[in-house]
């Protein structure tokens, strides 16, 4: 299933906030097309800042980002934003339109699609996340799990090449979490899942990358990384009590 083409190539990415606080410090990473990779790291490691770079919400200061061999720059910004689907940590920030249907249509409308094409994209994206029933509802009245699924639909409607999810399971109950993992498994897309939910990484992603202090500190098969207790402890990562990556088994 893995092709050799790189879906995402990040080279030597550094970023500091205006107050001088350096968040990313020479981060390099590549993700192959069709791969599902977990990006692990403690709070403050720079995970979200990194994600905001991937479709140009934060301006590139140093380093480069390529998505399917297109460099991220001013000129390609629109195309990059179509190709990289960002699912934000808080679904309430992502669902801002009055109804689910309009929210899912927002991206396709920005792509300049006509009404018929928009409707088609909306129907298809909502069906993919099993949310066709609440097209007319107000995002505010959805449950946490439903919001998360609709948030994913809003980016699927743009036909992205790469899906980036920031803490997709935060705030979900176990059933909602289960539905979400099943959904992510069913999507045939390159996925970068940013999380500190280690069992989720193990279940979904054969490969994991640990970032800490703004750079990649480990990159390898998820099961191996999670079995390295010393490495985890060094970077403030912890498995849930009683959880054994060997017993749970690697991602399929």
């Amino acid at each position: 299933m893995h092709s050799t083409a790189n879906s995402l190539t990040v080279t030597d990415l550094s970023f500091a906030y205006p107050n001088g606080h350096e968040v990313l410090d020479g981060l390099s990473l590549s993700v192959h097309s069709g791969e599902r990779v977990a990006l692990l790291g403690p709070n403050g490691a720079g995970k979200t800042t990194f994600a905001l770079h991937l479709n140009g919400v934060l301006e590139l200061q140093r380093g480069s980002i390529n998505v399917n061999d297109i460099p991220l720059n001013e000129e390609n910004l629109g195309e990059i934003r179509r190709r990289v689907g960002m699912v934000f940590q808080n679904a309430d920030d992502q669902l801002f339109m009055p109804s689910v249907r309009e929210d899912v249509a927002f991206g396709p409308a920005n792509l300049g699609l006509d009404k018929a094409q928009q409707a088609e994209r909306v129907a298809e994206a909502l069906a993919a996340v099993d949310a066709s029933d609440f097209a007319e509802r107000t995002p505010h009245h959805l449950s946490g799990g439903e919001k998360r699924r609709v948030a994913i639909a809003t980016v699927l409607a743009m036909h992205p090449d790469l899906l980036v999810l920031d803490e997709p399971t935060s705030g979900l109950d176990p059933a909602g979490r289960r539905e979400l993992t099943n959904l992510l498994k069913s999507l045939p897309l390159t996925q970068l899942i940013i999380t500190h939910d280690l069992p989720l990484a193990l279940e979904l992603c054969p490969r994991s990358v640990i970032i800490s202090g703004g750079r990649v500190v480990a990159d390898g098969p998820t099961e191996e990384l999670l079995s390295d207790t010393q490495l985890l402890a060094q970077h403030r990562l912890e498995l849930p009590y009683g959880f054994s990556p060997v017993v749970a088994g690697p991602a399929t």
Partner: peptide, 8 residues
């Protein structure tokens, strides 16, 4: 940010 990410 979320709007920009979807091509706003």
């Amino acid at each position: 940010s979320a709007m920009l990410a979807r091509g706003f």
